[in-house]
Write a protein that binds this DNA or RNA. Structure first.
Length: 261
DNA sequence: ATGGTGGAAGGTCCA
């Protein structure tokens, strides 16, 4: 089974790119973030035409929004209210092979990496803390957690560790929060399970760098984690970098995991 | 130090 996660930055604008991604990667399950569409306007028809007969989504006007597209049946799994808001940053499904799949869009956190000065940064840290507590309180199960976590934890998850230490997405306080979440529920960072930590891996390049790849100033913000119980079934993980160079690209590219279903 | 671009909107807000 192949699972991909992609911050698509408007699902309605990106249908042609989604079709191309699916034609090349042939995923069984697609997790999207930043769909930017209310539920009653979700383009289900066009996505069913791509072979996904089972679609669940949680969206709102203009911002955020998550979706899971699947070729096999899925059942909506439990979510919760995060940080007292209803801002469409999480959706979960039970897959037909018994895996519980969680798709997250973690708050970006604004520009100032200080939770007393910046409400958005506080929201991000609070969200991560709630994720940690929530998963810690659950009984053990075979789980996969994907999404735009908006944190690049390792030195070679950013183009310059030194220059990004004070930039939101790579500050020690966020990285510590992400590692705490990772360790509390025995998650494996599947991309780094297959790609050694000294090799740079990026999934996002700002639109403000005029040409891609240019100087390759990227960050690895998008992740696929699996519980350690799934380790024997992990086959391959990677990043579909080329999508950043297409016409009308998202600023993020798909990340994929192959797992024995 | 600043601003650079893109998306949803049809104001600006958000990334």
């Amino acid at each position: 089974m192949r699972i991909i996660t992609w911050n698509i930055n408007s699902v309605r604008l990106r249908i042609p790119a989604l079709a191309k991604v699916c034609a090349i990667l042939d995923p069984d399950v697609v997790c999207l973030q930043e769909t930017k569409v209310p539920d009653d306007m979700f383009p289900s028809g066009e996505i069913t035409e791509l072979g996904f007969n089972h679609i669940i989504h949680s969206g709102m006007k203009s911002y955020n929004g998550v979706a899971i597209l699947s070729k096999d049946p899925v059942k909506l799994a439990k979510t919760r209210k995060w940080c007292g808001k209803t801002d469409c940053r999480h959706i979960a499904a039970n897959l037909s092979n018994g895996i519980e799949l969680h798709n997250f869009y973690v708050p970006a956190g604004g520009d100032i990496p200080d939770r007393t000065l910046n409400k958005k940064f506080d929201h991000k840290l609070q969200f991560l803390s709630e994720m940690q507590d929530w998963f810690f309180s659950m009984p053990k199960a075979d789980r996969i957690l994907v999404g735009d976590l908006n944190i690049a934890p390792l030195e070679h998850d950013v183009w310059s560790h030194k220059q990004l230490l004070k930039v939101v997405s790579h500050t020690p306080i966020e990285v510590d929060a992400l590692f705490a979440l990772q360790n509390s529920n025995d998650w494996i960072d599947t991309v780094r399970y297959f790609i050694p930590p000294e090799k740079p891996v990026f999934t996002w390049w700002s639109y403000r760098n005029r040409r891609w790849p240019g100087n390759n100033r990227g960050r690895r913000l998008d992740h696929i984690w699996a519980t350690k119980t799934l380790a024997p079934r992990l086959k391959n993980a990677g990043v579909f970098t080329q999508a950043r160079g297409w016409e009308k690209p998202s600023d993020h590219v798909p990340v994929l995991l192959d797992i024995v279903s």
